[in-house]
Design a protein around this nucleic acid. Sequence first.
RNA 1: GGCCCCUUAGUCUAGUGGUUAGGACGUCGGCCUCUCACGCCGAAAGCAUGGGUUCAAGUCCCGUAGGGGUCACCA
Length: 471
Amino acid sequence: MDKPRVRFAPSPTGYLHIGGARTALFNWLWARRNGGTFILRIEDTDQGRSTREAEAAIFEGLRWLGLDWDEGPEVGGPHGPYFQMERLDLYEAHAEKLIAEGKAYACTCTKEELDAGRKKAEAEKRQFRYPGTCREKRHDRSRPHVVRFRVPEHGATGFDDLVKGHISTPHETLQDEVILRSDRVPLYNFGAVVDDITMKVNLVGRGDDHVNNTARQVLMYQALGYPTPAFAHFPMILGADKARLSKRHGATSVTAYRDMGYLPQAVVNYLVRLGWSHGDQEIFSLEELVRLFDLKDVGQTAGVFNPEKMAWVNHEWLKKLPDEELARLALPHFRAAGLGAEDDAKLRHVCAVARDRVKTLAEYAQSFRYFYAPAELDPKAKAKFLVPDAKPILEAIRTGVAAMDALETQALEKLFHDEAERRGLGLGKVAQPVRVALTGGTASPGMYDVVQILGKAETLRRLDEGIRAAG
RNA sequence: GGCCCCUUAGUCUAGUGGUUAGGACGUCGGCCUCUCACGCCGAAAGCAUGGGUUCAAGUCCCGUAGGGGUCACCA
């Protein structure tokens, strides 16, 4: 097989969403795996809904995921331009060729007439198909008109999908569809076909909401006299209610996950596993995927997006990062939470203890704000642990910490253990009141880490407050 | 509704005629332990359904049910 030339062709009508990202990922992986070319093309023919902001958001999302394109906006390439609105002449020329050969024709039916026909068909409970009013007419092309593609009346057109197998569509279910609007802008099926031909795309990988478009497109390739590319339709991504994933299912843009403290490695890893697998393996790096990804391993059943598993995958990736990297990535989240963190030893220590405890970087700042802001005393924790009995314990720990030059782990360990032993208590009886005093709650990283992160002065200050509260 | 596609635990999946149906998330239990996590060990939970074909069916065929997609001068 020739080197694959694949493309991701989003319409810039919104951010890069989870489904689009996975489509892009599968295409990108297939190109990289086979030394092929990954093309980005912007299908901006829906002028009412396309925006520059959405274009930028899509570029940003792809780049964040690490999916670079070989041809397309901002990088150029030999088959540009890569925006459909800049390729109008191309569509028109191909449409003219079809008209000249009798494979397409001008249609002057108005939208009103067609809508009336549709309404009538609905009332009579039958399928509406374009009745062919302009099919055999000589058309006055000075009047407003669309161009329709002539579809054979009988028979069927099929293709072999790389993931779904053979799919056949009876022509009876098709109609002479519009390929060029009256303003000369192409419709999806035609624009995509002309572009894929002229950009020499030889494998079309897209969501399986496009399977029903494929036969029409195959017919167009044939009419235009070009070989059809291979097709691969990827199963849809669904929400928990099994409906197609959408905004009402929560965050669906990839950049929203970035902002929630997900790593691009994790998003890629989770998305690739939704519809693709490699034995029992769950964790894959992009490099590994380039080596292992194969379209033949893409499944054909729609998958439900599961945020909990994605969080788990994120945690797995977070656990792999060195403290320095973790701190660098977590810093913006602390800042966003209004905390005055710096990329320093303290933040690295905080990240080191956070690593095993929470699954996203945004949670680092949420769960450990008491390292940067006054502890908020949980009333229940206070009632249970900051009691008169705890006062002497807190005082003893305070005295011990006050006497230390450096807050060495071993010294702290000795301090707590000795205190427990002296009183004939378990270590927990000593640690819990201290924990509540220092963090405000009953769950936190280990006490020695907490003391070290807080530092001597702040530890003493909080112990003083705890002693007051206990008294 | 027509047409197209799909169907292994709550979820993602392995499985290509002979397996105690494997892994993962989540859930539950235990161990570890200064709390919470992490880690480790363990458990519950699945082939939608009815017929065939076959010595043998999660795997092949047909039907049924359920789910999804699509039927525009949107993409």
